[in-house]
Write a protein that binds this DNA or RNA. Structure first.
Lengths: 142, 142
DNA sequence: TATTGTTATACTCTATAACTATA
DNA sequence: TATAGTTATAGAGTATAACAATA
């Protein structure tokens, strides 16, 4: 009988495999980031800016961080020439953050390297199972 | 034609869904940790110690961190009464780390809370699909 | 008055280098 | 000599609180 306390075996299995897979993937992303002297958070910043030009407060929301924390992150990324700050056209208080061309180049490179590192894992599944996996994950994330 | 550069659509799909799912899961773990004033790393330490009593160097390997970093982590966990250091019986240089009863209690609680938070996600899949998902993830991680 | 962003401050996390004690 | 662990130091990441500029 399932008493719905979240402890039945099937739930525990999904939880454990999801958690383990997540740590594996995050470790891999951290490794790619570290090879470019970036933290995981800096990599996230670049990934977010890949198809967005948010204001600071929006970037903080995406990252789940305080605005003050994001100020420092953006400072360091600007110092490295990866990111740009521009005063918003519609609100003189607001700052819009975007990738420089150097930042765009790097984010493409990072994506390629992640693909290379993740491939040995995913290719242990056949092509049909890869589609099943991404389908299941997407349905779960919706 | 797939030129095997890791850029075909199926590979990109799995990569993107895995990365997105991983960030979602890690954010959830961080949230549970934060509710107990723990960092994600401290939560990992407790989870590792749940069924192991490693020496410092082994714990560092599990975490993928330097021994000096682990010294600080264990210091803070000891200070909170969650973890204990004992001189190893076979090597007077080595230190064995283990959970206190308070640490055991907490790690159980954390696991329950993660299960509760992850449930809304996983339960969007039927029971058969949950099994498929954990099966695919496990095969991928082997 | 409320909001946007930055700055000041403090603590955690992490690495490197130097050290102590034991093997 | 080599290994296990700690300590000293420095930089990044993070939050809270206080602040300036603009709305």
């Amino acid at each position: 009988m399932n008493t719905n306390t979240g402890h039945d075996q099937a739930s525990a299995d999904v939880m454990d495999s999801l958690v383990q897979a997540s740590f594996t993937v995050i470790a891999l992303l951290s490794q790619v980031a570290a090879e470019h002297d970036l933290s995981l958070t800096q990599l996230r910043v670049l990934a977010i800016l890949r198809d967005r030009e948010p204001k600071m407060a929006q970037l903080a929301t995406f990252l789940g961080l305080e605005r003050s924390s994001v100020s420092g992150l953006v400072d360091r990324a600007v110092k490295r020439g990866l990111v740009r700050r521009d005063v918003s056209s519609d609100d003189a208080r607001a700052v819009r953050v975007s990738l420089t061309s150097e930042g765009q180049r790097l984010v493409g490179l990072l994506r390629d390297q992640v693909a290379v590192l993740i491939a040995p894992m995913t290719s242990s599944l056949g092509s049909a199972d890869q589609k099943r996996l991404s389908g299941l994950l997407r349905r779960m994330l919706e």
